[in-house]
Amino acid sequence: MPTNSSNKNELKEINALVNKYLCNFITKKFFSPFSNQKGIEISQNQYSDGCGITSSTLSKIKDSDGYNIPMTTIYSICRFENYSLEDFFSEFEKEYGTNIRP
């Protein structure tokens, strides 16, 4: 039977992988390229202002390793994009499944 320590390590690895996949999914879906609600390409700073997230946070999301992205950040991006959380997570699940493992 696995030890409590190995369970914690596995959960850390899974969480890191989920965050990486979430960030990569957001980057591919919404940041390639950055655009406003009219579909016009805008700068990262303009996008940042529009959704109320710092430009440095957007840079962290764009990093291929991702980062520990808060739910409020995902919500802010979806709200700016006029995209429901239900649709967002449904598409994420279709792409990555429901049992992400290292």
Score class of each variant (00 low, 15 high):
P2G: 02
T3Y: 06
N7G: 05
N9F: 12
L11A: 14
K12P: 00
E13K: 13
E13N: 11
I14Q: 07
I14P: 04
I14L: 06
V18N: 01
V18H: 02
K20G: 02
Y21Q: 10
L22P: 01
N24D: 07
N24K: 12
F25L: 08
F25Q: 05
T27C: 06
F30W: 09
F34W: 06
F34S: 00
S35Y: 09
S35W: 00
S35M: 10
S35Q: 14
N36G: 05
Q37D: 05
Q37C: 04
Q37R: 13
K38F: 08
K38S: 13
K38P: 00
G39D: 04
I40D: 11
I40C: 01
I42D: 01
S43A: 01
S43D: 05
Q46P: 00
Y47A: 07
S48E: 04
S48K: 02
S48W: 04
D49C: 01
G50D: 08
C51D: 01
G52M: 02
T54G: 15
T54F: 07
S55E: 15
S56V: 14
S59H: 13
S59I: 14
K60T: 13
D63R: 13
D65H: 13
D65N: 15
G66H: 11
N68W: 13
N68A: 15
N68R: 14
N68G: 13
I69E: 07
I69Y: 10
P70R: 14
T72C: 05
T72M: 07
I74Q: 02
I74C: 06
I77H: 02
R79K: 15
R79P: 01
N82A: 08
N82W: 00
Y83R: 02
Y83K: 02
E86F: 11
E86W: 06
E86Q: 12
D87M: 08
D87C: 05
F88P: 00
S90T: 14
E91W: 04
E91M: 11
E91Q: 13
E91F: 06
F92A: 00
K94A: 11
Y96Q: 04
Y96I: 03
Y96N: 12
G97Q: 07
N99C: 11
N99L: 10
R101S: 12
R101N: 09
R101W: 05
P102C: 10
P102L: 12
P102T: 08
